[in-house]
């Protein structure tokens, strides 16, 4: 595997995506909405006086709010006032699975462009006739989707951390984020999910004819994220270091299985029948 070939493929794929506005606009909008605008709104609104007096249940018992959560989770919330508890729970926990939308979305957009898109635009043939190996083509294209997916996720994470620590400071009185469970989320689950997005899109791309179809079918993976959101909200899944590592490991195993299918599909012999 030659790194120059990989680099060239990555660069070319990203250059192409960057020139398709429908592809990259959501990549910019979504993190801004979810990880800057919404948390900012959430932290600022309660501090407007009219809002505070009408909606904040100041006399609520923290224990009551937390009753749905498992015991070991409750321990994490000990010593927080109700004011602090809500941002802590929502921004520190409930938001976490939403975070996975980022790697999933970016990786499936780029992969849909680079796998289904090349087929749609009939440019694949030029690649197949190049002196690259099947493995180089696949790796280059997979990395072209993975790297920005992980990169944008990290960037969103940094933005999110800055926003909620700054705007949340008056409420929390300290730098409280990231919580420990976020480390496996960002560095173990996120790449696994990004890879999952790539692989599922590659499999879908083998069957559909256009970028849009591949992108939309790849979007079905968002259901996975919804599952995690619901799991988190109902207290079935608790984002801690251990559970994060376990979920991540399961995802990597799934990735490994899918990768074997993808490699079988992504060979010149199979691809040439489709150009």
């Amino acid at each position: 595997m030659r790194s120059r070939v990989l680099k060239a493929i990555i660069k070319k794929d990203l250059l192409e995506v960057s020139r398709n506005r429908t592809a990259w606009v959501p990549v910019v909008i979504i993190p801004l909405v979810f990880f800057v605008f919404l948390p900012a709104l959430f932290l600022l609104l309660p501090r407007l006086s009219f809002f505070q007096s009408t909606t904040m249940p100041t006399n609520l018992d923290p224990g009551q709010v937390l009753s749905v959560l498992p015991e070991e989770v409750k321990a994490r919330f000990a010593g927080l006032s109700v004011d602090q508890l809500i941002p802590f729970a929502i921004l520190g926990y409930f938001f976490a699975p939403m975070f996975l939308v980022m790697p999933l979305m970016v990786s499936s957009i780029v992969a849909a462009e680079s796998f289904a898109g090349e087929k749609e635009r009939k440019t694949l043939e030029g690649l197949l006739y190049s002196p690259t190996t099947d493995a180089e083509l696949f790796t280059g294209k997979a990395l072209a989707a993975l790297l920005p997916a992980v990169g944008f996720s990290l960037l969103s994470f940094v933005l999110y951390t800055v926003v909620i620590n700054t705007l949340g400071y008056p409420i929390m009185g300290r730098i409280w984020f990231p919580l420990p469970g976020w480390w496996p989320l960002i560095f173990w689950i996120t790449p696994a999910v990004a890879f999952l997005g790539v692989l599922v899109t590659v499999l879908v791309s083998a069957r559909v004819a256009t970028f849009m179809e591949a992108y939309q079918s790849g979007g079905m993976l968002v259901l996975l994220v919804l599952g995690l959101v619901v799991g988190q909200a109902t207290g079935i899944i608790y984002l801690g270091v251990l559970s994060g590592m376990v979920i991540g490991t399961i995802l990597w195993l799934v990735d490994w299985l899918l990768l074997r299918f993808c490699l079988r599909l992504f060979s010149r012999k199979v691809l040439i029948g489709k150009v």
């Binding site: 070319k12 635009r121 694949l124 690649l127």
Partner: peptide
């Protein structure tokens, strides 16, 4: 089988690199 969103030069540089 060329990339329409890329310029002639970018196309050639890309293929040159993978060759």
């Amino acid at each position: 089988a060329l990339y329409e969103r890329l310029s002639a030069e970018e196309n050639l540089l890309f293929f040159g690199n993978i060759c």
